[in-house]
Amino acid sequence: TSIVNVSSSLNVRSSASTSSKVIGSLSGNTKVTIVGEEGAFYKIEYKGSHGYVAKEYI
């Protein structure tokens, strides 16, 4: 489990790309479970499925 480190919110994306669809967002200090990594993104558990967040904010 890791913590989201942002002051406002962090986009959760459908794939490991800044141009991919935003499927949701997480607020600062939210706990997330990392299940993998791809480039500059972590794959996380998100709403019963998976999403991707930028590593620099975790």
Rank of each mutant, 00 (worst) to 15 (best):
T1M: 10
T1K: 09
T1C: 15
T1Y: 06
T1I: 14
T1F: 06
S2G: 15
S2T: 14
S2Y: 10
S2C: 15
I3M: 11
I3S: 08
I3L: 10
I3R: 09
V4D: 06
V4P: 07
V4I: 11
V4G: 14
V4L: 09
V4W: 04
V4K: 07
N5R: 11
N5E: 09
N5C: 15
N5I: 15
N5Q: 10
N5A: 11
N5D: 08
N5V: 14
N5S: 12
V6M: 09
V6R: 07
V6C: 15
V6Q: 08
V6F: 06
S7M: 12
S8E: 10
S8M: 13
S8I: 13
S8A: 12
S8K: 13
S8T: 14
S8Q: 12
S8H: 15
S9P: 13
L10M: 08
L10T: 12
N11G: 07
N11P: 15
N11H: 14
N11K: 15
N11W: 14
N11Y: 13
V12F: 02
V12K: 00
V12G: 01
V12T: 02
V12W: 02
R13P: 01
R13A: 03
R13E: 02
R13F: 15
R13K: 06
R13V: 08
R13N: 07
R13C: 07
S14E: 15
S14W: 08
S14F: 12
S14G: 08
S14L: 13
S15I: 05
S15F: 08
S15K: 10
A16W: 04
A16I: 04
A16N: 04
A16Y: 03
A16P: 14
A16K: 02
S17G: 06
S17D: 11
T18L: 14
T18P: 14
T18R: 12
T18H: 15
T18K: 13
T18Y: 15
T18F: 15
S19L: 11
S19R: 11
S19T: 13
S19N: 13
S20T: 03
S20R: 02
S20P: 01
S20V: 03
S20C: 05
S20F: 06
S20K: 02
K21V: 10
K21T: 12
K21P: 15
K21A: 12
V22I: 14
V22G: 02
V22H: 04
V22D: 02
V22N: 03
V22M: 06
V22S: 06
I23M: 07
I23N: 01
I23S: 02
I23L: 09
I23K: 03
I23G: 00
I23Q: 02
G24T: 03
G24R: 02
G24P: 01
G24H: 03
S25P: 04
S25A: 10
S25H: 13
S25I: 15
S25C: 15
L26V: 08
L26H: 02
L26G: 01
L26Q: 02
L26F: 05
S27I: 11
S27N: 10
S27E: 13
S27C: 14
G28L: 13
G28C: 14
G28W: 14
G28N: 13
N29F: 14
N29M: 12
N29A: 09
N29V: 08
N29Y: 14
T30Y: 08
T30L: 07
T30S: 11
T30M: 11
T30D: 11
T30H: 07
T30E: 12
K31H: 11
K31R: 13
V32E: 00
V32D: 00
V32K: 01
V32M: 06
V32R: 01
V32T: 03
V32N: 01
T33Q: 08
T33P: 03
T33A: 07
T33M: 10
I34Y: 02
I34H: 00
V35A: 04
V35F: 05
V35G: 01
V35S: 04
V35K: 04
G36T: 03
G36S: 07
G36E: 05
G36A: 08
E37Y: 06
E37G: 04
E37D: 06
E37F: 05
E37P: 02
E38Y: 08
E38M: 07
G39Q: 04
G39P: 02
G39Y: 04
G39T: 03
G39D: 06
A40W: 06
A40M: 11
A40V: 08
F41R: 00
F41V: 01
F41W: 13
F41Q: 01
F41C: 03
Y42W: 11
Y42G: 01
Y42C: 05
K43N: 02
K43A: 05
K43E: 05
K43I: 14
K43F: 05
K43T: 03
K43P: 01
I44W: 04
I44P: 00
I44D: 00
I44A: 00
E45D: 07
E45W: 10
E45T: 08
E45H: 07
Y46W: 12
Y46T: 01
Y46K: 00
Y46F: 13
Y46A: 00
Y46G: 00
Y46C: 04
K47A: 11
K47S: 07
K47Y: 08
K47H: 09
K47P: 02
K47V: 05
K47E: 12
K47I: 05
G48Y: 05
G48I: 03
G48E: 07
G48P: 02
G48D: 08
S49C: 08
S49T: 11
S49M: 12
S49P: 01
H50F: 15
H50M: 08
G51F: 04
G51C: 04
G51V: 03
G51H: 01
Y52P: 00
Y52R: 00
Y52A: 00
Y52E: 00
Y52H: 00
V53Y: 02
V53S: 00
V53K: 00
V53H: 02
V53A: 03
A54I: 09
A54W: 11
A54E: 15
A54F: 12
A54N: 09
K55E: 01
K55I: 06
K55V: 04
K55T: 03
K55H: 03
K55L: 03
K55F: 03
E56L: 10
Y57P: 05
I58Q: 03
I58R: 03
I58N: 04
I58L: 11
I58E: 03
I58A: 04
I58V: 09
